[in-house]
Amino acid sequence: MRALQRAWPLALGLLVAIDLLGPLAFGAAAPPLALHHLEHAFLLVSGGLFAMAYVRRRPKPYGDPLWILAVIGLGTLSLVLMLPDVYGIVDAEPVLHTLLHVGFLVIGWLGGYAAERYAPKLGFGWQLLVIVMGVITATGFGSGPPVA
């Protein structure tokens, strides 16, 4: 149990690294849109989890309302980054795309950090927000009607 508690950041870090570097190394094509949205949610959530672990080790005074505004702003930003117009730019270039994915990881981290800075364990709220956004975008954000 103890070991598991210590090992999860490593395991998650490994998964994230595979997810980020795999496509670069093997040149895999981008997954279908729905899966791609979930992939982004995975990166956001992982970033958030790392932040929560980090903050828990270094408790800081908390409470500035601006942290909550940051959380909300970061959530919106992550949606904007999933727009096809943004995607058109990075899709062609695997390195850019990977950078964007690193960006999602960072946003996830920042969101989790900001939420924890407002109140301990509030990273939970951030995770809830990104998971729901990820699942909903996966059901059809950025895709048109089925061709009849």
Partner: peptide, 26 residues
């Protein structure tokens, strides 16, 4: 929070379509 998350996807999709009608919506 779940509702707000859904609402933000909704509004961002609509605003995206407003900026650029190319943005597809089902």
């Amino acid at each position: 929070l779940i509702t707000v998350a859904a609402g933000s996807v909704l509004v961002v999709a609509l605003l995206a379509h407003w900026f650029s009608p190319k943005f597809p919506i089902d």
